[in-house]
Nucleic acid binder design. Structure first.
Lengths: 156, 156
DNA sequence: ATCACGATTGCGACTACTTGCAACAATAGG
DNA sequence: CCTATTGTTGCAAGTAGTCGCAATCGTGAT
């Protein structure tokens, strides 16, 4: 027996109810891709995967939905220090925020969770009376394996 | 008596000597704009100002120079949480890194300096054996004046 | 089940940024 | 000062992301 299409809300989908945010075919497709993704996706990949579920999904709907999710603090947007061009990557927000580190030489991406980061956010909320919805800390530099060799990258 | 054009190096310009990085007309123009800027500039503004000094400066040279400066840790790139579209802003790296906070409702940008941030970077360098060149912490949320009113922004 | 309202969509045109390439120019060496 | 080397540039075409608008579709009330 096929499930009605409002089933399987997932965290992202259930967040929308009761805020005047409508659940459309297209959003359902996009959200379910986000919810099942296991790695950082860029907008083009997300579009392709969503179109496999609902072929009518348009590029601009993907971008609009991403903006919506960002503003509600449900996903994080990363640019990984623009190591591979200008694109952005997206990931579902997990319980614990993590820092992203990108090696400027080998391109490796590392993640790191830190209590000090949580403490820092607490300080901002308190000292600046600022209510944090999204935060992102990205670091570029040289990983343990690439230190010493340093530049080695094209200069232009 | 007019100064020879290699004069007035500024911090940015002097950094380049002896690393195989050439000091061209165009770079001189771009760097001097960066060095004298007093606020966050976007790439288009930087291009316009640089062209007033050297009309031959091309858009792509501006972007290439910005990438170069980023990779050497001499400037910071901000997107201010993409509050005003997709553009990026640039600022000369100062002694002390600062956090940028963007209000999702009124668009105000605030800056904040924190010892805890310095401590966090120290932790990353030590625990991850990662040599930091650039780091950027941007926070989106609601400023003191806009808390309570919260969403109020277009949902789409 | 139907309706009305307004949120959401696809489209096409637009802005932001990047890249490959042939021409050019900054530097080191003679 | 001249030359060779090689980093750098402008151009034009490409990719990433945005926006205004008319048409469409969810949703809550009937």
């Amino acid at each position: 027996m096929p499930l009605p299409k409002t089933e399987m809300p997932g965290r992202l989908q259930s967040h929308f109810a009761g805020r005047g945010i409508r659940m459309t075919q297209q959003r359902r497709a996009i959200l379910s891709v986000m919810e099942t993704a296991t790695k950082h996706l860029d907008a083009a990949q997300l579009l392709r995967k969503a179109q496999k579920i609902d072929a009518s999904v348009d590029r601009s709907t993907v971008y609009r939905t991403l903006r919506l999710l960002k503003r509600h603090g449900l996903i994080d947007e990363l640019d990984l220090m623009h190591i591979n061009g200008e694109g952005h990557y997206y990931e579902r927000k997990m319980n614990r925020d993590h820092i992203h580190m990108a090696c400027l030489r080998c391109g490796k991406i590392m993640e790191f969770v830190s209590d000090i980061f949580e403490k820092l956010k607490g300080q901002v909320e308190k000292d600046c009376r600022f209510r944090i919805v999204v935060s992102r800390l990205e670091i570029g530099g040289y990983c343990a394996a690439c230190r010493g060799a340093e530049p080695a990258q094209r200069t232009a």
